[in-house]
């Protein structure tokens, strides 16, 4: 249904972070992060709140300044690209967020159309601004909205949709954009289970069609459905591997000192979360269920 990523352009290629450090004022958000992501990979990033997950995603679109290190996309340094080249990269990166980050005052259809905005010239931008999307784009918007279960809602004001519906609008925007790299920043933290399933399925479908998929997750159970998991703790990768290798012991170390999922100071005396033994592994410790952390 969705055509494969733009064939004309050279694919984005492999993403390589080399010793990437990002500090805000003094506190490090990322510290010496070296990660490689192959095209088409399906990757989950976990870690407590404040571990640097969101910053990791933001550097991939050059949305924060690097303190040191290098990020290569397809062999080219992302942070030295010209404005035009950067735009070309960003156009092929799709994002989806916990807080949807749609423009609530616009009709749902326009928010979906904004997946294409990076590729619009000034004339088309103006026409879309004044008269709305037309022709092929309008048709594609209707189709994608139908695909996410929101057919006929293109004219509905986005703010009037429920949270789960808004997240599906965000997914529809991704479908219109057809990105090569999808950055999903805790997309399930604020939506219902049905939408979670639906969004996961769509993201996996896009991944199957060739897009690289990076998802930030609070919910370790969903993360286990990914072939590769990276865990961050205090800005450093502390785990990188398949879900079978992610033992409960490793998990509790990842979330240690963070009993409420907040960015609390790490306490050396609570290296292991004692409640894990009380509650057993069937139940998730607070901060890992994706709810109590917000």
């Amino acid at each position: 249904m969705i055509s494969s990523p733009r064939s004309k352009e050279k694919p984005l290629g492999r993403i390589a972070l080399e010793d990437v450090t990002v500090r805000f004022s003094k506190a490090p958000a990322l510290e010496d992060v070296t990660i490689e992501v192959e095209p088409g990979e399906r990757l989950a990033v976990i870690g407590a709140s404040g571990a640097g997950k969101t910053t990791l995603f933001r550097v991939l679109t050059r949305s924060v300044a690097l303190t040191s290190g290098r990020i290569a996309v397809g062999g080219r340094d992302l942070y030295t690209l010209s404005k035009k080249e950067l735009k070309g990269v960003r156009r092929r990166v799709g994002t989806i967020y916990q807080a949807y980050n749609l423009v609530p005052q616009l009709p749902a259809g326009i928010n979906v159309a904004l997946g294409e905005v990076g590729g619009m010239g000034s004339l088309k931008t103006l026409r879309t601004f004044l008269a709305g999307p037309e022709g092929a784009l309008a048709k594609r918007i209707e189709e994608t909205l139908e695909r996410v279960g929101l057919s006929g809602r293109a004219r509905t004001r986005t703010a009037d949709l429920s949270g789960g519906q808004q997240q599906r609008v965000a997914v529809a925007r991704l479908l219109v954009q057809r990105p090569e790299l999808i950055l999903a920043d805790e997309p399930f933290a604020a939506v219902d289970p049905v939408t979670t399933e639906r969004v996961t399925d769509t993201l996996f479908e896009l991944n199957d069609e060739g897009a690289t998929l990076l998802v930030n997750l609070h919910d370790v159970n969903i993360a286990r459905r990914f072939p590769r998991i990276i865990a961050l703790r205090e800005g450093r990768p502390v785990f990188d591997g398949s879900p079978e290798l992610l033992t409960e012991e490793k998990l509790s170390r990842i979330y240690a000192g963070d009993p409420y999922g907040t960015a609390a100071e790490p306490d050396p005396e609570t290296q292991y979360d004692v409640r894990r033994h009380v509650e057993g592994s069937a139940r998730l410790v607070e901060g890992r269920d994706g709810i109590s952390a917000h």
């Binding site: 949305s63 960003r90 423009v103 997946g115 905005v117």
Partner: peptide, 26 residues
């Protein structure tokens, strides 16, 4: 955040102004 989200997917400053800031301020 919606404005930044637009920028992150390749919108120009003018585009993110027209579709991100302006509708929210109207």
């Amino acid at each position: 955040r919606p404005v930044e989200a637009l920028r992150a997917t390749g919108a120009s400053p003018l585009q993110s102004f027209l579709f991100g800031r302006l509708p929210q301020a109207m």
